[in-house]
Design a binder for these strands. Structure first.
Lengths: 171, 171
DNA sequence: CGACACATGTAACACGTTACATGATTTG
DNA sequence: CAAATCATGTAACGTGTTACATGTGTCG
């Protein structure tokens, strides 16, 4: 395929959710070519299009990707978890409020996702549908986790206020 | 605090899981100072330490961060979901195998996490514990999602093989 | 004609991350 | 004394991302 085409396919399948800057397609294509995973087939054609083709190395890379499990983020960069952890240990932050704010936001996005899913169901794009369902699962899990946290922290109140200023730390 | 100290605290609280390169502390500190969120208090002291202090702007930033919900990744960059979606639509990929590989990997990491949690429970570091629990919740949700996907794709077999090569795409 | 879709590409930035350089101080 | 720890910092890279530059073809 050529760059513009890749973008078109993508936009079509995601129903123009998930905006994708065309420029990024070209930068990525260039980087893939640099790494030998992809190669241009001939020069630009009459309409100025430059078609690319996957190489053997590229195929190997893809195969490897499919064969290798995704290692769930180590170290953990989960912003929400970190935020809650920080809220809990930072004096003067209403953790309860933070949780509630997040909860309503997550519920709202869950609604949006459900709406999108309905659209995707009609459209019958299996790939995009799968991604959406994954997001729904995640959002639901997030709500469950938030509820769990709430119980957890109301049960065990802040573990004695920390004294920040003094505290000789290292050694 | 000063840079080295920040790193020490961090390592201590995460039990030396989550390795953190010291250099990163200094680059980050420098960038925070550049943005006026943090400022050095005086020059380097006798032992060569440079202490930093949060500014009002920094405090405001933090407050804003706590008040704003995390918007769950839009566009969705979930590698696993994308991988499965691609597996489903790429001819010649055994989606079943991909799911199984991931499933065992996730279960294994779930074990590790549980072990870590036991350690954290003794250590009683509330923040780190919370992060760990979040990861456990996520891992469990992932397994559930994988099981759901498996049922989903064995129930509805690949939606008629796609013809790749032809397909006039744009327009 | 002027606007819009098609099509390609480049320059630039921020951020996360690492490897390396440099010294002072402690400790076996 | 040598090795380890404490402590700071810089140069560099890769990637995701955007804004911009440029040109062709189509259509109301």
């Amino acid at each position: 395929m050529y760059g513009y085409q890749l973008r078109s396919e993508f936009e079509a399948s995601t129903g123009s959710t998930w905006p994708l800057n065309v420029g990024q397609v070209y930068t990525t294509l260039a980087r893939l070519e640099r790494d030998g995973l992809v190669e241009p087939v001939g020069e630009s054609d009459a309409e100025g299009r430059v078609t690319y083709r996957i190489t053997d190395a590229g195929r190997a890379e893809v195969a490897g990707w499919f064969a290798t499990p995704v290692n769930g983020e180590s170290p953990p960069r989960d912003e929400l978890a970190i935020k809650l952890a920080m809220a809990l240990t930072t004096p003067g932050v209403d953790t309860h409020r933070v949780i509630q704010t997040q909860r309503t936001a997550t519920l709202r996005s869950l609604q949006d996702l459900t709406r999108l899913k309905a659209r995707a169901d009609e459209q019958a794009d299996a790939a995009w549908l799968l991604v959406l369902e994954s997001m729904i699962f995640k959002a639901e899990a997030e709500v469950r986790w938030l509820d769990y946290c709430e119980v957890r922290i109301t049960a065990a109140p802040p573990p004695a206020p920390v004294e920040l200023p003094s505290k000789e730390v290292v050694r």
